[in-house]
């Protein structure tokens, strides 16, 4: 447990220091959301209707695009080999790394959501709903995206190919995240059902993500 704790602390510290690049995700998120009114027009009613969808898409892209760094830096300096060979199960180590990545790159997105909600003319309740669904949903994005990151490091290919492979897998999270936010803002449907499914998706990804990433690392690094 202490080994995993140390791993999490180390990753968060690396991500937050100069050159770590975790906060660039927030900047990307901000830029994507600011771009939207230029595409659909500055109509505040329309923007508030599309708000949850825009925020969710922005968060989805921001959290997936920062992900190929997850294993790459460790692979370059050789510490990934140490992690693979250590006595800690690789699955748990992967989960710890993903958790650290989410703390460093995912949480800032959720903190930034209220500010961006203001730009999109979302009221307090709506912003809160979007932030809550993001809080429940972004771990699923990180843990599914980790599979892509592990493939990227074993194949020495990153970027667009990994995004293409991982994005279809994140469709369910997107559907239920936006549905739960919209349920609060407009929908006649209750908030509870899509939100619980969203939480369930996150829990499932906690199992599948580390297992698949560890399998990919174990079979791919040789």
């Amino acid at each position: 447990m202490t080994a995993l704790g140390a791993l999490i602390r180390r990753d968060v510290r690396i991500a937050l220091r100069v050159g770590g690049g975790a906060l660039i995700g927030v900047l990307f998120f901000l830029t994507v959301v600011v771009l939207m009114p230029f595409a659909v027009g500055p109509d505040l009613n329309l923007l508030s209707r599309l708000g949850p969808a825009i925020l969710w898409l922005g968060a989805l892209l921001a959290s997936l695009l920062t992900l190929d760094r997850l294993f790459m830096a460790d692979h370059d300096d050789g510490s990934l080999d140490l992690i693979t060979m250590s006595r800690t199960p690789l699955e748990l180590a992967c989960a710890a790394k993903a958790l650290a990545h989410w703390l460093a790159a995912g949480l800032p997105l959720i903190v930034a959501t209220p500010v961006l909600g203001l730009l999109l003319n979302l009221d307090m309740v709506a912003t809160g709903a979007v932030a809550l669904t993001l809080l429940a949903g972004t771990p699923a994005l990180t843990f599914t995206g980790m599979i892509g990151a592990a493939l990227a490091v074993t194949l020495h290919r990153g970027g667009l190919l990994m995004a293409v492979l991982v994005l279809p897998l994140s469709i369910p999270v997107l559907i239920f995240g936006v549905a739960a936010s919209n349920a609060v803002i407009v929908g006649p449907t209750p908030f509870g059902a899509p939100f619980s499914i969203l939480c369930a998706l996150s829990l499932v990804s906690f199992v599948i993500g580390p297992l698949a990433a560890a399998a990919s690392l174990r079979h791919g690094l040789d």
């Binding site: 599979i147 592990a150 897998l169 369910p172 698949a212 399998a215 990919s216």
Partner: peptide, 20 residues
């Protein structure tokens, strides 16, 4: 090996995607 991991993850995810 990479494709195998992805195929299996896809096989688990496809029913979830279908349901969603």
């Amino acid at each position: 090996r990479a494709a195998a991991v992805l195929t299996l993850v896809g096989a688990i995810n496809l029913p979830i995607i279908k349901f969603s």
